[in-house]
């Protein structure tokens, strides 16, 4: 059986693919920056979520206090006129 010959441009095709893979690959520095930014954004969002949660919880407690407060319009001296 005779040996089949590959494309005469095989070497050029290989080097083109190697060059393309070099251009496409991101540098180490920009990858680090992207990860750093992602972590920062996640932390900010996390802090905001936690603070909203805390605010709502403390807000509920305060409204409970208001309904029993003497400042409420319903008190013992309320006169009901019939």
């Amino acid at each position: 059986m005779q040996k089949a010959e590959p494309s005469v441009f095989l070497f050029e095709q290989i080097t083109a693919k190697i060059e393309m893979s070099k251009v496409g690959s991101p540098s180490y520095g920009s990858t680090l920056l992207k990860w750093g930014l992602a972590v920062f954004v996640s932390v900010v969002i996390g802090v905001n979520v936690i603070s909203i949660f805390k605010f709502r919880t403390s807000g509920n407690e305060m409204s409970n206090v208001e309904t029993t407060s003497s400042d409420s319009y319903l008190n013992n001296e309320t006169v009901y006129n019939y």
């Binding site: 040996k3 089949a4 590959p6 095989l10 070497f11 290989i14």
Partner: peptide, 21 residues
């Protein structure tokens, strides 16, 4: 290094291609 890589490709390309085929 490109010259030696070229030599490697030229020396082995027929074998690699025929095995693959």
């Amino acid at each position: 290094s490109n010259i030696s890589f070229r030599e490697i490709v030229d020396t082995h390309k027929v074998r690699v291609f025929n095995t693959a085929i």
